[in-house]
């Protein structure tokens, strides 16, 4: 939790009291307000609102006003209003997503923001993969992730806001553009993108809703298993296998390297659960292709995150240090290219 000058917390509390009263139709009192995660942009605040004697555990997702859009990869992220509508559509389609309740209005003065119900569980991989309370859940997560993903991909496109379509070729072009902006030559990443380019799947005729950041660290788990899929700002239309490949990128195993499905299980287990829940039959070669793309993508994100510090846009030791993690993906890419040769 982050300690603020009282004024920012007070401003947020006052705006939430007003907006929550408006939504529930009764005077709301706001308690236990605290910021959950860092970052000058993209804040997450947790609070309780008591209205008409009923207590609601809620979350505020917020981009504060008067801040430039973060650069690099993030510039393709959804704005809050679109993200709100995507989560609402997924929720209606039966996806285990948080229940979004209402958007903040411009006169509330909090910038782009919305409120959703708080869901139990933790997203911290280190705890989920090792701590005793999650022992039983660990056996269920892979199957649940496959099943939930099939539901995401089955979301009725007519219920979604307009979203960009990203085909395999678009992804390669975007990553090459990011590399060009970095300015330092990256032979292993260039080799990997050319390898991907020569083997890319043909454009898919009927793109589906793709979560875009479906990985360990971006969903909540409690003792019973997965409780909610979070972080929808990368949602777009495209090849559903993209999400399956990204989940299996080695960086999301957090040390459990022999369990490709997010550190919890095997690819076969993940795919079987996905297919049982109505997902299309998974072509292993296509899944491998997207895993290679995901690995290259994470490597380039490491560089762009470091660049946010190096360019002077944000001063952050943490972001700077991520630059030295890119080589982890180079190790993985050389290995993956040999496997899929």
């Amino acid at each position: 939790m982050i300690v603020h000058t009282t004024s920012e917390s007070q401003i947020v509390a006052a705006a939430l009291a007003h907006a929550t009263s408006r939504h529930f139709g009764g005077t709301a009192s706001i308690e236990n307000l605290g910021q959950e995660s860092g970052g000058a942009s993209r804040q997450t605040w947790s609070f309780d609102a008591t209205v008409n004697g009923e207590c609601h555990g809620l979350i505020l997702r917020r981009d504060p006003p008067l801040q430039g859009r973060p650069g690099g990869e993030r510039s393709s992220a959804l704005d809050r209003a679109t993200e709100f509508r995507v989560i609402a559509a997924a929720w209606k389609a039966g996806v285990r997503a948080p229940e979004v309740l209402f958007e903040m209005q411009p006169e509330d003065g909090l910038g782009e923001a919305y409120v959703m119900r708080r869901v139990g569980g933790t997203a911290i991989a280190r705890k989920l993969l090792r701590d005793p309370p999650y022992a039983a859940a660990r056996g269920r997560v892979t199957g649940q992730l496959g099943e939930i993903l099939a539901r995401i991909h089955a979301t009725d496109l007519a219920t979604l806001p307009p979203l960009v379509t990203r085909q395999a070729a678009d992804q390669i072009a975007n990553l090459r553009q990011s590399l060009d902006q970095l300015g330092t030559p990256q032979p292993v990443l260039e080799l990997s993108l050319s390898w991907l380019d020569r083997r890319k799947p043909p454009p898919i005729g009927r793109p589906l809703l793709v979560h875009g950041d479906y990985r360990t660290g971006n969903y909540l788990v409690d003792e019973t298993g997965v409780t909610a899929i979070l972080d929808w700002e990368g949602a777009h239309l495209g090849d559903p296998v993209e999400d399956l490949g990204w989940l299996c990128v080695k960086s999301w195993r957090f040390g459990a390297v022999d369990k490709p499905a997010g550190g919890f299980g095997s690819r076969a287990e993940l795919w079987a659960a996905y297919e049982r829940a109505g997902g299309a039959k998974v072509d292993p070669a296509r899944a491998h292709w997207w895993e290679v793309l995901g690995t290259a993508r994470w490597g380039i994100i490491c560089h762009t995150q470091a660049w946010r510090h190096l360019s002077g846009a944000v001063k952050s030791m943490e972001l700077a240090s991520i630059g030295r993690r890119a080589v982890e993906t180079e190790v993985d890419l050389l290995q993956l290219l040999k496997e899929g040769a």
Partner: peptide
């Protein structure tokens, strides 16, 4: 130069 050759496909895996 190596990165350039890899992008253009003059060299590959």
């Amino acid at each position: 130069e190596l990165a350039r050759q890899l992008r253009t496909g003059e060299r590959d895996e």
